[in-house]
């Protein structure tokens, strides 16, 4: 593993043209993949795809945010910024997985949920909130993997899981570094500075209890060896999915709740410093 990179250098890597996307990974990780479309309420969002696949011998449900590999693909998938119907499609497929006792694998790769008129009109907040709440009690194992960018609530909507893995250079953040700089300092150009103080790297996630595993990338980044990185992801899933499937579902749900329940740092009965006269 390459541990010397700064968060900013990793962000650059994640934005490198040629970084593999979910469309590159699916054929190398899964044996079959039938894509399923639509939320049955409004439409079919192109920023989230979902379907049924086979991992080793096990049928699984795959839900993933889609980045484009070039400008045309990116336009088609709205730069991986989902609309509410994307999140509702994800939930529909997750519920279907629950019914047929299939584990769910979510791939996170988004700068954030789409911010626009139609997103607000169709309830972006409600769609994300509902996913978060429903995934918390979904009675089937859920594994999430952050492939590149995990931006804000738009990422978390696919991130309530039994275990979260990060690709080595992937990042997970409350808002994009650019958004962070513009909100806190009213200056989006301080993106690099924001990036380096926000604690958004895979190691930060493990330290803060957000992620459990870091999946190693080939030297120089995932784009240097697609076969190798796909193999690493598959190896991780082939280990974790059977492990989680073996667990009693009530135990698993309790552990899932506890995983998130314990994140947060505060003190109670604080002793406030007394200011003495000089």
């Amino acid at each position: 593993m390459d541990e010397k990179k700064t968060a900013w250098e990793r962000l650059k890597l994640v934005h490198t043209k040629g970084r593999p996307t979910i469309r590159d990974y699916i054929p190398l990780i899964f044996d079959e993949f039938y894509e399923m479309h639509g939320d049955r309420l409004y439409g079919d969002d192109k920023a989230i795809i979902g379907g049924i696949a086979r991992l080793d011998q096990t049928p699984v449900t795959v839900i993933a945010q889609v980045k484009g590999r070039d400008i045309n693909e990116n336009k088609a998938c709205n730069f991986a910024m989902p609309l509410p119907e994307g999140y509702r499609k994800a939930l529909r497929l997750a519920k279907q997985a629950e019914k047929f006792h299939r584990p769910v694998i979510c791939f996170i790769d988004t700068p954030g949920a789409y911010a626009g008129i139609e997103a607000e009109e169709r309830g972006q907040g409600e769609a994300i909130a509902k996913n978060i709440a429903e995934f918390m009690t979904l009675r089937t194992p859920v594994i999430s993997i952050v492939l590149g960018e995990g931006g804000s609530g738009g990422a978390l909507a696919l991130g309530v899981c039994d275990e979260l893995a990060m690709l080595e250079n992937a990042q997970y953040s409350v808002v994009s570094p650019r958004g962070f700089a513009s909100i806190l300092w009213k200056d989006a150009s301080r993106e690099e500075e924001a990036c380096n103080i926000m604690r958004i790297t895979a190691e930060d996630m493990v330290r803060l209890g957000v992620a459990e595993t870091i999946i190693e990338e080939p030297l120089g980044g995932a784009h240097n060896d697609l076969d190798k990185i796909s193999e690493n992801i598959k190896e991780y899933l082939s280990l974790k999915i059977p492990e989680k499937c073996k667990k009693d579902i009530d135990v698993l749900l309790k552990e899932r709740y506890t995983k998130f329940r314990k994140i947060g740092e505060f003190t109670e009965h604080p002793v406030l410093p007394r200011i003495s006269g000089e």
Binding site: R199, V210, Y257, R261, G264, E265
Partner: peptide, 17 residues
């Protein structure tokens, strides 16, 4: 913002409860 990812995770924690 000042609590970074920890603040994002509060969404999951509260919604779970």
């Amino acid at each position: 913002m000042q609590e970074g990812i920890v603040s994002l995770m509060q969404m999951a924690k509260t919604s779970g409860a």
